[in-house]
């Protein structure tokens, strides 16, 4: 008898609630795409916002709705993009190109002097509010570490010399630091971009000479030396086009200020 009752009660309860649930599931049904959750799980979950949406889950929603390109998750890179394509049943679109952040300034504390002493909140954006920043060079890195603070992947650290350092292993190229830098000193470049000029100054050569020992003075020696016409000077600043550069290294030899850097070497050293 007891055994029967056990069956009856548990089974009965199961039936009643099962029935109720089945009814409710129909009555209160809410359309929801299960793929959103699947994709959210695939994402790195740093909520860095590099995709242009409020966070990983909202990116997932948009991507399922077809309102966001599948390869906009920068930190996830090709792998995540391919996974998303798989979930959505699309062809893989992502390129192998990896992006990383680099600091476009070498004017460390001892090389690029300050024009006045700044007191107050140790934050680059805050310092910019007072006479446009304390460094004599109005384009150089202020070195207060706003970029280090915001990095969601812990890839930036402040060096002894007052310039941030990028840990190329950890950097995903999400670009949060580049957005945070009030002077646009940090930029996201292609890791394939083997050579670059780490200076941000758009001042004329004369001004640069006065305010910094390692700024680009737009002498155009590199432009002339480059056999591939990969280097141009825009706004008093040499820029290397990664598509044309074949990494011959001639520009490095001729640069009077010895400031052209080889990212290939940077990565190798790391």
């Amino acid at each position: 008898m007891e055994l029967v009752m056990s069956f009856v009660i548990i089974g009965g309860l199961g039936l009643i609630f099962g029935g109720l649930l089945a009814y409710a599931a129909r009555r209160f049904a809410v359309e929801e795409d299960p793929r959103v959750e699947t994709i959210t799980d695939l994402l790195p979950g740093a909520n860095c916002g590099a995709c242009g949406f409020a966070g990983c889950s909202s990116f997932a929603e948009k991507v399922v709705a077809g309102q966001a390109p599948v390869d906009s998750c920068v930190p996830g890179g090709k792998k995540v993009s391919d996974n998303i394509c798989e979930v959505l049943g699309l062809e893989s679109v992502a390129s192998e190109d990896r992006k990383i952040a680099q600091v476009f300034c070498m004017g460390s504390k001892d090389i690029a002097p300050d024009k006045f002493e700044y007191q107050g909140v140790r934050d680059c954006k805050a310092a910019m509010m007072y006479s446009g920043g304390f460094k004599a060079c109005t384009y150089g890195c202020l070195g207060l570490g706003t970029c280090v603070e915001v990095c969601p992947f812990d890839a930036l650290s402040m060096g002894e010399n007052g310039l941030p350092k990028v840990d190329t292993d950890k950097c995903t190229g999400c670009g949060v630091c580049a957005k945070a830098c009030p002077r646009n000193v940090i930029r996201i470049i292609s890791a394939r971009n083997v050579k670059y000029v780490p200076c941000n100054s758009k001042d004329r050569g004369k001004v640069v000479r006065e305010s910094c020992e390692v700024g680009c003075i737009a002498c155009k020696a590199c432009v002339k030396a480059c056999p591939n016409e990969a280097i141009t000077v825009e706004n008093n600043l040499a820029v290397i086009d990664s598509a044309k550069c074949d990494s011959c290294g001639k520009c490095i030899e001729v640069c009077k200020r010895q400031i052209i850097k080889d990212l290939g070497k940077v990565l190798a050293v790391k």
Binding site: G120, V121, D123, K125, A126, M129
Partner: peptide, 12 residues
């Protein structure tokens, strides 16, 4: 504490 400066940052 540099409260005014922080407030200015917040206002911006």
């Amino acid at each position: 504490r540099p409260l005014v400066q922080w407030i200015r940052i917040a206002k911006g």
